[in-house]
Amino acid sequence: MRLNGLSFHSKLGLSGFLMTIMLGLLSAATLIGLLYSSSNSGFNIPEIDKVKAKYSESLLVGAMKSSMYQHVTVDEDIGVVEKWVKDGAPDNDYFNDEVMYIIEADCQKCHSRTSTMTGAIPSMPLNNYDDLLTYTEKGYSWVHMAKSAHIHLLGIAVVMVLVTGIFSLSSFPSMPKTVLICTAWSMLWLDISAWWMAKFSSVFAYVIAGSGALEITALVLMCLLSLYDLWWKKDKKLPE
């Protein structure tokens, strides 16, 4: 079976699926750009420092540098909290006078057990020392890693098997097909494993960014080439 030999309606159905996957990838890239940049709108290229912050630093500091950056009043606040975490997160005057002052101003409105503010996150309170200590561990914790990894691996695998499966039926030569399919799968594994490795070396932040970009690129290319094969590529006689 070849893609360009399918019936008109099968081509329509597969095209809808492939275009939906590309829109989904565009949305994912948009979200990644927003989470790892200083902007809260539009399309952005992720900043490597923010990727490092998320995977190589404590969840508290990492969030202040990336996903929660929009709530940080001034950049100096991050330095104050970062210093406290690097010093071992002690329960001292510095914590009470400097760190909690920032947490109260920038975080507690939402991160409070009793907050009823729109968008509040009562399940992640930052009300006292014990609350904050939970988020000072460097990089992903075992629980966080297991939770994020299984969701991404299982979810992306379903998309990947469908896209690679469709692309494998295209009439392109074997070599590009092999390269793209192998790239997509290997980059997925590399990306997820680098989440954990970044805990030990921030160099793996570059691996996360690179493998993620390659993974999305491979998927988009497979979608585009499959669409091309469905509608535009001239029919060739199949070998006997």
């Binding site: 929009q70 009043t73 001034v74 507690q108 409105k109 409070s112 057990r113 309170p125 009300n127 006292n128």
Partner: peptide
């Protein structure tokens, strides 16, 4: 007020914490 251009009103908004306190 540093941070206003980024956070708007939130820069001056302080809600009660879990202990019912502000500052």
């Amino acid at each position: 007020a540093p941070g206003f251009a980024k956070k708007g009103c939130a820069v001056a908004c302080h809600l009660v914490n879990d202990d019912g306190k502000i500052n």
